[in-house]
Design a protein around this nucleic acid. Structure first.
Lengths: 249, 249
DNA sequence: GGGTGAATTCGACTATTGGCTAATAGCACC
DNA sequence: GGTGCTATTAGCCAATAGTCGAATTCACCC
């Protein structure tokens, strides 16, 4: 964990958490101020980053105005942009409270609308290995897992949380050899993901994997995408991917 | 994990996450709709819960109007209120993606403004055991841990994430006998919390605990509060605690 | 065809957010 | 005292959010 850039989805989770905290605060102005102070940023500095007058920042923080959703989004984005300029010092701290091991999770997002299994098969350039399982379920989000790192670094319960294991989410295991160990992990999990996608260097699927999926009642998809990157990009396109552009300071 | 009510702080984390997702969505209207569909709620039902006309919901979801922060808060609160009426079916699913073991974490929140060590000592009705350690640091949030359950159910890395282990957060260990095992856990952690509070049935503190705190450079506070509940309430009062009142359906 | 329920569209009005400039205040330091 | 920096306040205008009710559309069923 050197000076590498935090992963996009982590930054995005942090941004959403901060924004949500402000929205639900009983005093949104004070919440704006709290987070600005947390990032150790002056009103002048964030005003410059947002290209507005400093008095606007004061108006909001003192409660003269209540921030709308658009303003909150820009304010939080500016906090993060400035933290980036400083080397992500605060984001590195905050990511420790997220509870996701970044080395094992490649990406984790919500789709911007509900997605069908058929659409997901298309997105991951895959084939469905369990055609007889209920394909009507709807998927609202996904987790892309680096299987080798996950197995190396996670205990049972973490795997459980990592799966984002709800019936409305997809889990994509990458770097998979035959598909067996992910399916064994899911088998022992008390709750199941909505659908499992496997992607790996070889195109051979252990029949046991398919049988375990069937027993669990979880659709299993084999992705034939050229690379993990390809999967990441294609799924992100369905997630209303937010790009944090860096304002000139 | 029977039919018990999810803990408040979990519900609140979910609410904030949903709100944040909507705020940062490139199409907030579509995000509103996505979440409503996820909760399997019709426009009419949420309109009734919010006491507005159904056409208002449609205007927002179709993008004719962009939701402000106030509306997002009310919309998300209504989703949750309806889910509560249904027995928290969707919240139970979502809490699995939070990555916090609810049985070990009693409460976990952000303060609504920065809090000094002296203030924290007062809040937990405590005494500072490490008077020579930098007391100028600022605390922005806290985690209240049930020490026995945490030790019983967590592995090393989970403990690490559980601590919310950043220099700006406090960790309160409850059900502590002498204070030694929490300090040992912190000692082996690569990052340290901003301050540690211990609370337990006995008022005896193992001198080793104090020495370990000193070595870690972490202020250690002994709380003399009458109960864990007392601590929860007093800290919540500093957190802009949001109460989800249940609208009549 | 008709009926029902859910969702959408539209015109209109009011309240609030978003932003500005200018003046002022507070604090630390010399 | 002066200087520099940060923050606050007030008045003002424009644009947008919030909301209504009426009419319309759509899907499903008999």
């Amino acid at each position: 964990m050197a000076n590498s850039t935090p992963k996009d989805y982590i930054i995005e989770l942090i941004a959403k958490r901060i924004a949500g905290d402000i929205v639900f605060s009983q005093d949104p102005g004070a919440a704006l101020k709290k987070w600005r102070e947390y990032f150790d940023i002056s009103q002048n500095e964030i005003a410059r980053s947002m290209k507005i007058a400093p008095s606007v920042v004061s108006d909001y923080e003192k409660g003269r105005r209540r921030p709308g959703a658009g303003f909150i989004k820009r304010y939080v984005s500016a906090l993060l942009a400035i933290d980036q300029l400083r080397g992500w010092t605060r984001v590195r701290q905050l990511m420790r409270t997220i509870g996701i091991p970044p080395e094992a999770v490649i990406d984790m997002r919500e789709f911007d609308r509900k997605v069908t299994i058929a659409e997901l098969v298309d997105l991951v350039k895959g084939v469905i290995l369990t055609p007889n399982i209920d394909a009507d379920r709807q998927i609202y989000g996904y987790t892309i897992v680096d299987s080798l790192r996950a197995i190396a670094s996670l205990s049972g319960m973490q795997f459980y949380a990592l799966l984002g294991a709800t019936p409305e989410r997809a889990v994509i295991f990458t770097g998979v050899q035959t598909g067996r160990s992910p399916m064994v992990a899911v088998r022992v999990s008390p709750v199941k993901p909505g659908v499992i996608v496997i992607h790996g260097p070889r195109r051979f699927i252990d029949p046991l994997a398919v049988e375990l999926a069937r027993l669990d009642g979880v659709p299993l998809i084999l992705s034939l995408a050229e690379s993990v990157d390809d999967i990441v990009k294609r799924l992100r396109a369905m997630s209303g991917y937010t790009s944090f552009s860096l304002p000139v300071a």
